[in-house]
Design a binder for these strands. Structure first.
Lengths: 351, 351
DNA sequence: ATTTAGCACTCAAGTTCTTAGAGTGCTAAT
DNA sequence: ATTAGCACTCTAAGAACTTGAGTGCTAAAT
């Protein structure tokens, strides 16, 4: 019996505890719950129910004579079963669009701006992981001379991300040769290569083919690298507003760990599914963050998830808002990467 | 007489006060100074001298029965007249080089890494402002098709920075036309434009010339924009280690203001001169930072300053170290941007 | 004319003690 | 099953006290 599912009343009380605690940051007592609870009960009854909820591990007391606060399990239940969420926040989306419209025209700027906006509405730390190179997505190569014997190899993804690498050779390469090379690199046509080589003067041949080989090598390297992601983060200072992080010590280790990119790889690896993901407390997988929750989602190129976006805040965060906003943002980013966002019409990329 | 310059002994004492305070973060009393001071004096004498220094505004007491701490003026004097600095930290430079060598090949990664490294050795917040486009520096334009009617215009600076903008037209553009366009954009030859147009089919002409005009417009816009800089910042969490920032309030407003890019424009605008610059307390020009100091320098492309690098820390920072490291870093960045760093040989950009 | 010893005084910071109040669990009555 | 009542617990906030580092001043010593 004590095993079974929670009674409706208990759910209601748990819900009230979580929401009250989220709002006030202080343990909630039976008194306060009377008003918040749908049922018309006396404090004493509530106390009994709370004792029950505590014995099942959903809530706990910071000390004997205090009210209750949710445990990780309590938050989990709240998020999984009690939270009613809308999937899209139109208001925020229109804000995002406005933001984008104002003269940001590069993908990177859009991502930066997204992270800023998300942080500023949620009042939590926002993170966007942006892909640097997406396997399987069509892309063009451009070799550009940058003075001397240095060349910049640009890899331009179909959806607008640019990646650049330096390449250096000993020989001088003419503009004409460079153009040929570019053609070659994009066509991947071995026959054409040989043909072109035939048309060259002897002394040119060497530099030409060397540059070609190097470029090929770099391309291969890029393809073989496991997906690197760039981290964009904003709003870390919001942690300082939260009463549970008043302690300078705790917040230090937390921020420190947020500054390391590995942290995100760890957090975001539990990527499965199409859904939005909520990690609570220790679920985040690193102990510096056991007082935090993370709400995140993937955004996609076609079907393939290419990046993540999320917010990080205290466990006490407004999950409803966070889920809605993160979900909206992910959708927005997906549509931008897939060029099907109508952004052009609205003037974002327009010139 | 009390106007004149400080006596050698007073300088020595001031120096001791500053350095002791930098080291310990607590007001220094006459006792402690006895040991630190070169002269062999009793506490009483030191007290007299300290009273004198205080009346001249170099040091002050946080409260009546405490030791002295330096005022902004005291730090200023210390930095201007008492600090003996070496200009280059070979050790750090070699660390930087090692860092770069390990497979970072894009300019942006180098800058990111620089900022990280500077933060991690100084244990202070490090900032690098990177140029996005440098006027007067030669650059190439490449238009790249990214599916549909979208084009990415790449602006590749001679020194290796890439900037990208989306351009969209209504018409379809063929690969051949695109190549022509690229040639045109880089040669700026009006005659050639007309000639190319003649060679085109009628229905192509329109799209072609429209794309050309748009590209030209974007180029002009970029040229007219006042220099935008990208901000790279690391190590903000180091502030939390400093005892003077134990207060959660203060640090909140500080970090918040560091998250805004305008702050840096304000700080770094006092650019004059070739030298390294030290701003102390209110000199930073914004009140959120009145407990901070900034040490920064410009790095250059040829003679022209194109970006800044610096550290931000408490006024109590180790100025000797900061000056040396910032100066080294600026030199290093300059040489990288100017392609005269021998990095190629050492393998940084090498492939 | 400096320098120094000595002393009375000040003040922050830490400690202990006290109090007030919120909240609980239990028992007995509804 | 619910609730009123009550004794009990524990934190948070404040008051009172103590400690010690550090000062400024005066008068003696160099």
């Amino acid at each position: 019996m004590s095993e079974g599912i929670l009674t409706a009343r208990r759910k209601n009380i748990l819900n009230a505890v979580v929401e009250s605690y989220i709002g006030s940051a202080r343990p909630v007592g039976s008194r306060a719950l009377v008003q918040r609870c749908q049922y018309n009960l006396s404090p004493a009854t509530i106390r009994n129910e709370m004792a029950e909820l505590e014995s099942r591990g959903y809530i706990t007391q910071p000390h004997t004579s205090a009210g209750r606060i949710p445990t990780d399990k309590g938050y989990r239940f709240y998020v999984d079963h009690l939270l009613k969420i809308e999937k899209i926040d139109k208001f925020f989306l229109s804000r995002l669009n406005r933001e984008y419209r104002s003269r940001r025209r590069t993908l990177e700027e859009i991502i930066r701006e997204t992270s800023k906006a998300l942080a500023s509405v949620t009042h939590h730390t926002a993170v966007v992981l942006a892909p640097q190179f997406v396997k399987g997505s069509p892309s063009r190569v451009e070799l550009v001379a940058t003075g001397g014997k240095r060349f910049l190899m640009l890899l331009v993804s179909n959806f607008g991300l640019v990646e650049d690498k330096f390449i250096q050779v000993e020989e001088q390469i003419s503009g004409k040769e460079l153009r040929k090379l570019n053609e070659l690199l994009n066509n991947q046509d071995r026959e054409a290569l040989k043909e072109s080589l035939l048309g060259l003067k002897k002394e040119s041949k060497e530099g030409f083919s060397r540059l070609y080989r190097k470029a090929q090598r770099v391309l291969r390297e890029i393809h073989n690298e496991k997906d690197r992601k760039k981290v964009y983060m904003d709003g870390t200072s919001f942690f300082l507003d939260e009463p549970e992080f008043k302690d300078g010590e705790k917040i230090g280790v937390l921020l420190r760990s947020l500054e390391q990119e590995e942290t995100f790889e760890r957090i975001f690896k539990s990527t499965a599914g199409d859904e939005i993901k909520v990690l609570i407390g220790r679920e985040c997988g690193c102990k510096e963050m056991k007082e935090c929750s993370v709400v995140f989602a993937s955004y996609r190129l076609g079907e393939k998830p290419i990046g993540k976006v999320g917010v990080i805040g205290p466990k006490r965060m407004d999950y409803r808002q966070a889920v809605t906003l993160v979900s909206s943002t992910a959708k927005r980013l997906s549509s931008i990467f897939n060029h099907l966002d109508g952004v052009g019409k609205e003037g974002v990329h327009q010139v």
